[in-house]
Design a protein around this nucleic acid. Structure first.
Lengths: 136, 136
DNA sequence: TGTACTGTAATAAAAAACATTACAGAATGA
DNA sequence: TCATTCTGTAATGTTTTTTATTACAGTACA
C-alpha cells in the first residue's frame, strides 16, 4: 500500500483540514509528522500537482487545502501517492522458458489491480473531513 | 501489499499446484521465479509454517501442496506472507505534543485494517486452483 | 531590503530487500 | 555404508529504496 508516503500525505492533509484557511509552513507540518521539512515539501509538491492543496511562496506563506475537506476522498490521496510511486513496478524477471514464469506477471498484475480496486472502493467511502473529525 | 514476497509465494504455489503430487526442489522453483534458491527455501519455510505446503528432506526431496489447490485461497497466501512481514510496522514517530501527531497512528492503523480487509475479501474469492488454471 | 517562506537539486546516510556462501543434517539407493 | 542430492538455516555481502541533510535560488511581505 506504500504505507510511508500515504501516511505522510494523510497526516499533512489532516493538519491542513483542521487549520481551515490558515497557511501552514512546511516547517510546522514537518514538526508534527516528525520528518524532514524537505520531504514534506516534496509531498506537498505532489499533492499540489494533484489539485488537493495550494501553496503560497514567500513570507507568511505555506499551504492549505485547495477545496473543502468534505470534497477530498481518501482515495484521491491514495491515487496521488500511488501515481508518483507505482509507475514501473514489476521488478521481477521470471524465467521466460517456463510456462508459469512466462505468464505470471500478467496474471499477477491483473490480480493486484482487482485487489487494489477493492481497497480503493473502500477508501472511496471516507472523506478527509470524516477522517479529521476523529481528532479531539 | 508487500508485493515482492506475495508474488514469490504465489509463483511457487502455482508451480506446485501444476505439479500435482511431484516433489519440486527449491533449485527448480528458483529457476522459474529467477531468484536465489535460499530465498525460495525461506518462503517455503514460511508457507510450510502456515500449513500450505509440505516438504521432504534428503535425496529426491522437495515440496508439494499440503492440500488440494481448490482448498487454498489467495487470501491464505496473503495472510501467510503478511504475518511474517507486517509485525512491527509503524516506523513513524509523530510528535506527541501535537493533537494530530499524538493520535494519528491509531487512526491510520484502523484505516489500513479496513482497507486491507476490503482487499482480503477480494482475495478470498479466488482459489489457487482458479489462479493456476489461467496458465496454458 | 531584510526576513521568512517555498521549490528543487545534489548528496549522504540509513534501512530494507535480495543474493551469496557455507555448511550441518536428512533421506535415498547403489 | 557412504556418496549423492536434497532441505534448513546462519552469516555475510551487495544492491536498491527510502529518508535525511545541505545548499541555494526565487518569491512575497512589511
Amino acid at each position: 500500500m506504500n504505507n510511508g508516503r500515504f501516511s505522510i500525505a494523510i497526516h499533512i492533509l489532516t493538519l491542513l483540514a483542521r487549520a481551515g484557511d490558515e497557511w501552514l509552513s512546511s516547517e510546522y507540518l514537518a514538526g508534527s509528522v516528525n520528518i524532514n521539512p524537505v520531504l514534506v515539501r516534496k509531498e506537498i509538491s505532489n499533492l499540489r500537482r494533484n489539485g488537493l492543496i495550494i501553496s503560497k511562496e514567500g513570507k507568511n506563506g505555506g499551504s492549505r487545502l485547495a477545496k473543502p475537506a468534505e470534497k477530498i476522498l481518501l482515495s484521491d490521496v491514495y491515487q496521488a501517492v500511488r501515481q508518483a510511486s507505482l509507475l514501473g513496478q514489476n521488478k521481477n524477471n521470471p524465467n521466460p522458458d517456463c510456462p508459469v514464469g512466462r505468464q505470471i506477471n500478467t496474471h499477477l498484475d491483473q490480480l493486484y489491480l482487482e485487489a487494489e480496486n477493492a481497497m480503493v472502493t473502500k477508501l472511496n467511502q471516507t472523506t478527509l473531513a470524516d477522517f479529521s473529525k476523529k481528532f479531539a
